[in-house]
Simulated assay, not measured.
Amino acid sequence: MTRGEAADPPDSGALRTPDRLRRRASRLLSQLTARSDRLINVGLAEVDARKWHYAVLASLADYGPGSQAELSGRTGIYRSDMVGVLNELGERDLVERAPDPHDRRRNIITISTRGRRQLRRLDKVLDTLHDDLLAPLNPAERDQLVQLLTRLLDHHTRTS
């Protein structure tokens, strides 16, 4: 499946969708999320990566080494899923695990040099995918959309 196939063609039923549904932000966000996830998942799969790989590598690059629990909190990846993600990244030599000097029962995860190179490659892939996703918007509109979505998410993250 190519990236073009990942994004659904324009909804031919959009004209038949009741206006009251097309005016609901929650419905629009849900539909766009589904299309965005499909586009990103397929695009990353084309370069043998997954969105959780990117999330862990970005977290390690931006915030430094951390335990599995810390990485779970930073990325939103369930702790039970984190082990599998770290195993995949470890098998590819993208992260390194070492015993925590303060608590030998847990490991500290660090991004490797190879992981930093992979993260730069994935940044470029995601830039292209986001350009596809946001194609109808000009740069100022894209920035505004990200600011508005961030504001909404921050509000609902604080209150939940």
Rank of each mutant, 00 (worst) to 15 (best):
I40P: 08
Q31R: 12
T159R: 11
R27P: 09
I108S: 05
Y63T: 11
T2W: 00
V42K: 03
R79E: 02
A58K: 11
L145E: 08
L148P: 04
V42M: 07
S80N: 05
R114L: 11
R97E: 05
W52F: 02
S67P: 03
L29R: 13
A7M: 07
D19L: 14
V83Y: 14
L44F: 02
L89S: 08
P101V: 00
R116W: 03
A55T: 07
L15G: 15
R50D: 07
A34T: 05
R151T: 15
L39Q: 05
T2D: 14
R104G: 01
A55G: 03
R23K: 14
S80T: 14
D131H: 14
S80L: 05
S26F: 10
R79I: 00
T17P: 08
G73M: 07
R27V: 14
R158P: 00
A58G: 05
P65W: 00
M1W: 10
G43I: 00
R105H: 12
S160V: 13
R74W: 06
A25D: 13
L15E: 14
D123Q: 02
A45W: 03
I109W: 02
L133V: 01
D127L: 08
V85A: 04
V56S: 06
Y63Q: 15
R23S: 13
L39G: 02
H155G: 10
E141D: 14
L32C: 05
D143G: 12
I40W: 03
R117L: 11
R50E: 12
D154N: 13
L126P: 06
